[in-house]
Design a protein around this nucleic acid. Structure first.
Lengths: 233, 233
DNA sequence: AGGAATTTGTGCGTATGTATC
DNA sequence: AGATACATACGCACAAATTCC
């Protein structure tokens, strides 16, 4: 028995998750220096190589800065500001707490009618019902290219972009929208609107890093409700 | 000895760049399966761990899809996304690690003999000596329009286009070249060639977004060495 | 259907280089 | 200059996914 594993996840992912939790809950503070890698590895009961893989993971997520000859430093970017920076739907009075219910999520092949984006032939499709202050204001279908990684239903928070950062390790840096009129898709859930009826429509391409968009999404919003779409630059 | 400092990149980066280059130049085609990792490592004279680090790097760039139990598959998203995407000079045997030494860099007014490009009257001028596998093969003078931002000597990597993306936040999407015969400029550094002697010559306009080019460059290359210029589309 | 062969993923250990303090 | 700490590189054993017969 060379080594044993009780859990499904690889050990370096477990270590990475462990540290993320410590950072999120404040047990590790911003700017704090971690113990030396050898010492940490011994404490955590792992090898230095595996620990380094976990630390590299954290660095990729922007939660850690690794400085040769010096140490590993916690970097906890303030999350409150800018979380919903790219959300285009607003209440007229401003503000509004954005939440979302996931309708379906899964990995599938990109259908032919999807515009070209990403590097893979597959993508994670997420369908959600979106709320502002508990008012259902939109349904959306998001296609995240498979090259970015895969998401499960249990990993989703109310902010997808935050989920991208914490789970997959990248941040959406740029998005381009196109607004028009469409009809509600046939999978629209009952409380929201009747499939087929006309409504507002946003198509979006999103970039993380590099020249090609990594995500494509469609948002249908009910124009009879008191919401409006932010002016698009 | 100002230009004698040789780039000594880690081996896994060199391997990664080597493969990117083979993908960009079409030596490796989209969908193609790479040889098994152990075999590749032996061929390339490296260990499997180092090769895997390079392959992970490619995967992160979206150029490679790695499938456990199956193999490593080239994924070439539309436009070449690699570090040396638009570098036209090649070794006949293919491959070759491209590096560069900066000779001078600074912001100055565009001289009158420069063709029209960009929106500003000033530009950052960069003069570099370029290498493939440590062979000095070309000198180049790059004019980056001041409207794109300014670069310092400490920000430059071996790939200017990558620097543009990381430091200035844009990506070169299109380039047009014109090839001819010229004479080496008077600022040509000593190890390369004698100023005034005839050599090959490439003039280039580069676009990022919008209708006007943002960059203009001139490249002089020694035709007596064993290099050739890629066919210009 | 099923088992063997192939191929990548994970984990561990060690030696050496290089940046920081 | 020395000590400390992270980075690179190599190698091996086994697990897990895929492919092939």
């Amino acid at each position: 028995m060379p080594y044993s594993r009780r859990a499904d996840l690889p050990k370096y992912i477990q270590l990475s998750e462990l540290l993320i939790r410590d950072i999120d809950t404040g047990r590790l503070l911003d700017g704090e220096r971690l113990p030396p890698e050898r010492q940490m590895a011994a404490t955590l009961g792992t090898s230095i190589g595996t620990l380094r893989k976990a630390l590299a993971n954290l660095e990729q997520k922007g939660l850690l800065e690794r400085v040769q000859g010096s140490g590993n430093y916690v970097r906890k970017p303030g999350k409150a500001a800018g979380l919903y920076a790219m959300f285009r739907l607003e209440l007229p009075e401003g503000g509004g707490l954005p939440t979302a219910d996931v309708i379906t999520i899964g990995l599938c092949a990109k259908p032919d009618d999807l515009p070209a984006f990403g590097a893979s032939v597959r993508a994670t499709r997420i369908r959600r019902l979106r709320y502002l202050n508990d008012i259902a204001i939109a349904v959306e279908e998001i296609w995240l290219d498979a090259s970015a990684g895969t998401l499960g239903a249990d990993m989703l928070g109310d902010s997808l972009y935050q989920t991208y950062l914490e789970v997959l390790g990248f941040w959406i840096t740029r998005a381009e929208d196109r607004v028009g009129i469409s009809a509600l898709p046939d999978w629209t859930p009952a409380p929201f609107g009747k499939p087929g009826t006309p409504c507002g429509y946003i198509e979006r391409f999103s970039w993380s890093a590099g020249p090609i968009p990594i995500e494509f999404s469609r948002t249908w919003f009910d124009t009879t409700k008191s919401i409006y779409v932010q002016r698009l630059k």
